[in-house]
């Protein structure tokens, strides 16, 4: 893999390589949120909270415990999944916007905790994290995550997730243990967020609580909703668009966020269900590899 990275950095500009690494990390994070919010329909607005848990845990494991990269990544992701379990529990009683408020509150509490966290350097942040995340590491993990996501959503569990989103009572009547599955969807989402956070920490080599604020959570939500709720290709497309957009908009300098905000509104007006709302791999596959011979519809 080192050879591949060396080769890539020979031929691709470091700036573009950087953007591609960020896209890879964001895809992992957005796919996590897609499972919780897009597929299972549990509105989570605290995704950056899980990301920060993964990032800090992985960074501290790397720096102080001397764990290998894979070990600390896994440690960070597991810690985040543990908090995902805790946050999933209130879903037994709460739903909709009350749940959204809990997730916002949770992320804010985590942020304030890290602002007071001495080993994490408080507001100064944690620096000196070893640099392990490279282009090939990120994309390898991203592709594995995408494939596993497709497998998960096509499995019995995945179909139950969709059922919960469509109609919880009907799902329960059909014999789905909604409680357990909702908690599970939070855990999977948080696990991927923690994984992405760990990769982010080992890429930036520096993390601070400000990186994981409310607006960061909103960014991930934008990616999922803009791409198309519950659709894996959609989420990937949304992530690519929303990671590239701020870079492309750099030419308009200080008007950048003005355009970004307007873009969100306009896209939602013209594509209310997201760019690829409800498009699944299956549809794309059918379109490209159909054996049926058809003429144009008249």
């Amino acid at each position: 893999m080192n050879i591949m990275d060396a080769l890539l950095s020979q031929y691709i500009d470091a700036y573009y390589l950087h953007i591609m690494v960020l896209i890879g990390i964001n895809i992992i994070l957005a796919l996590g949120l897609n499972i919780t919010t897009g597929v299972t329909g549990q509105l989570s607005m605290g995704h950056a909270g899980f990301m920060s848990i993964g990032a800090y845990t992985a960074a501290i494991l790397s720096i102080h415990m001397g764990l290998p990269f894979w070990g600390s990544l896994l440690g960070g992701a597991t810690a985040a999944a543990g908090f995902g379990f805790l946050l999933g529990l209130p879903t037994l009683r709460l739903e909709g916007d009350y749940l959204a408020m809990i997730t916002i509150g949770f992320a804010e509490i985590i942020r304030v905790f890290f602002l007071n966290f001495e080993p994490g350097g408080k507001a100064l942040g944690l620096s000196g994290i070893p640099e392990h995340t490279t282009f090939s590491v990120v994309w390898m993990i991203a592709i594995v995550v995408i494939v596993l996501n497709v497998k998960l959503l096509h499995s019995r569990i995945g179909r139950s997730f969709y059922a919960i989103r469509e109609n919880e009572i009907a799902a329960e009547a059909a014999g789905i243990n909604t409680t357990r599955l909702k908690v599970l969807s939070f855990m999977v989402g948080a696990f991927l967020a923690g994984l992405g956070g760990g990769l982010y920490a080992h890429y930036m080599t520096y993390i601070a609580p400000q990186d994981f604020g409310f607006m960061k959570s909103i960014e991930f939500l934008n990616m999922v909703v803009l791409g198309g709720m519950g659709s894996i290709p959609g989420t990937i497309l949304g992530t690519v668009v929303l990671t590239l957009a701020p870079e492309m908009l750099r030419i308009v300098a200080e008007y950048r966020l003005l355009f970004y905000g307007a873009m969100l509104v306009i896209l939602m007006i013209f594509r209310p269900n997201g760019l690829l709302g409800d498009v699944r791999w299956y549809d794309i596959k059918k379109r490209w590899f159909s054996k049926e011979v058809k003429t144009w519809e008249s």
Partner: peptide, 29 residues
Amino acid sequence: IAYRPIRGKSSRLSALISAIGVSIFLSTL
């Protein structure tokens, strides 16, 4: 401008994203 065109056509979440867009737009403005 930002909510009525979406209303009734899509999920509440799309309207939420539109609202976030308006919020970013206004504060930057």
